[in-house]
């Protein structure tokens, strides 16, 4: 790091650029003020929109089941459970496959293949979520319905309650799989960066002890890079919690607590997207915004955690989200 040099100009010259700099400072600070006001406005407006429902249902909204727009009975528990199941399911699935992929790229592939493979997987990040939704709805869900889900129902269903569902195609399983694919590029890119940053000495120390390559990789390098890997998982979790349209298209829609992996349901974000244009009353709208408020609080908490985690783990420069 270069020593911090003072960037203020000598005092006697202040007269020349003074007015220009004053305008510049005021302008830039006004922009920052506007942006922070927008951010504050977003919170305020969401709370304001949710207020009628907050007043009517209170915190019980979070622990009640039931979604009846006609009798104005609303409870968000199934959506909260759905959000957590889908987000964590996708995170663990993508985390496992993504970390293995990153290890393969950095440790197994020859140098000339590393760049292209990484680039291809990063391409996944450029596909918009509605396209994932399209693929999930029209390709993956029918495929699961005809093959995997039938097999699961027939062979695992009788033994495990969690597999004892009907093969709808769209449902939790499709949503989790699609979301996991969407998270892959994030996890692969960030954990690859963490693995590459492991110092040479650490690796060579392992070999000097006479360890095999796999033991060095799995026993030394991956644990050494765990901070970056955990950071990538938390960021992926944040993405997963808020993903809306791909999940809305593949999860099928349903208002009760899930019992099997093949059930249909909703997450907090997808219920808003799917129901918004069908609201029939102000209280119904407000209940949806209440779901949005819960989602906002959850994602802000996760993202603030991720921010401090990644910053603490990486120092000012090493690793970028």
């Amino acid at each position: 790091m270069i020593a911090e040099a003072p960037l203020t100009r000598p005092r006697e010259k202040k007269a020349r650029g003074g007015r220009g700099d004053r305008i510049y400072h005021v302008l830039i600070k006004a922009i920052v003020g506007v942006v922070l006001a927008i951010f504050a406005g977003v919170f305020t407006v969401v709370v304001f929109g949710a207020w009628p429902a907050v007043k009517r249902f209170g915190p019980g909204f979070l622990i009640h089941t039931g979604w009846d727009p006609v009798h104005l009975v609303f409870g968000a528990l199934p959506f909260i459970v759905g959000t957590i199941l889908v987000a964590f399911g996708a995170m663990f699935l993508a985390g496992g496959i993504g970390l293995m992929t990153a290890v393969c790229i950095t440790e197994l592939l020859p140098r000339w293949l590393q760049g292209p493979v990484t680039y291809l997987i990063e391409l996944l990040a450029f596909i918009p979520s509605v396209v994932y939704g399209l693929f999930g709805l029209l390709v993956l869900a029918p495929f699961l319905q005809e093959t995997v889900e039938v097999w699961i129902m027939e062979h695992l269903g009788p033994h495990f309650e969690v597999f004892n569902g009907a093969p709808y195609g769209v449902g939790y399983m499709s949503a989790i799989l699609i979301l996991a694919i969407m998270l892959l590029p994030l996890i692969v890119t960030l954990s690859r960066e963490a693995l590459v940053l492991v110092p040479r000495d650490v690796r060579e120390g392992g070999y000097a002890l006479g360890l095999q390559k796999w033991d060095v990789v799995w026993g030394i390098i991956v644990p050494y890079a765990r901070n970056g890997i955990v950071g990538s998982l938390v960021l992926a979790l944040g993405r997963a919690l808020g993903e809306t349209i791909a999940v809305a298209m593949t999860i099928g829609g349903g208002y009760s607590l899930p019992k099997t992996v093949m059930d249909q349901g909703y997450t907090l974000a997808s219920v808003i997207a799917n129901e918004f244009n069908e609201v029939s009353s102000d209280m119904y709208l407000s209940a949806l915004i209440y779901c949005g408020l819960i989602l906002l609080v959850i994602t802000v908490v996760v993202n603030v955690l991720a921010y401090f985690l990644v910053r603490r783990l990486s120092g000012a420069h090493g690793f970028k989200a």
Binding site: T101, V103, E107, V117, L120, W214
Partner: peptide, 26 residues
């Protein structure tokens, strides 16, 4: 240990194929 390495790296290879397969199938 040698077999564990083959198995481990084999799994990472399968994971990479799954990742690339997802991209190419979409």
């Amino acid at each position: 240990r040698k077999w564990r390495g083959v198995l481990g790296f084999g799994l990472t290879g399968v994971a990479t194929l799954i990742s690339l397969g997802a991209l190419f199938s979409i």
